[in-house]
């Protein structure tokens, strides 16, 4: 059975990465920005898995790293949501443009 070549997977992960970047910069809704960040992290995960499988099939470092990233991302999301809820209580909005009081 013919394997999917590595380049295909890398193109997929790059596409996912830049979609995430684009979303992060273009959206004003904090929840959407958070989802974009998840996309970026997942594109990195795909890279880890792909390189692990294609270059070092007998080792598991890439898989473990992916696990770590998923755990860290979950923790990060819970923190971010907490911050967003607090911001909402204070400003009554989750628009990133309206919460700019932390400056000089």
């Amino acid at each position: 059975m013919e394997q999917v070549p590595l380049s295909h997977i890398l193109i997929l992960s790059s596409a996912l990465f830049f979609l995430g970047i684009y979303g992060f910069f273009s959206r004003r809704n904090m929840i959407t920005m958070l989802m974009s960040i998840e996309l970026i992290l997942n594109s990195a995960n795909i890279n880890f898995i792909a390189f692990n499988k294609y270059l070092f099939p007998h080792q598991l470092e890439g898989v473990f790293f992916t696990m770590f990233i998923i755990v860290v991302a979950a923790a990060e999301v819970s923190l971010s949501i907490a911050i967003i809820i607090n911001l909402y209580r204070r400003f009554n909005t989750i628009d990133i443009e309206d919460t700019t009081t932390m400056k000089y």
Binding site: F24, F25, I96, E97, T99, T100, T101, M102, K103, Y104
Partner: peptide, 11 residues
């Protein structure tokens, strides 16, 4: 002014 408080400009 670089410290604008806008998260996206920092990013």
């Amino acid at each position: 002014p670089m410290q604008s408080g806008k998260v996206q400009s920092y990013a």
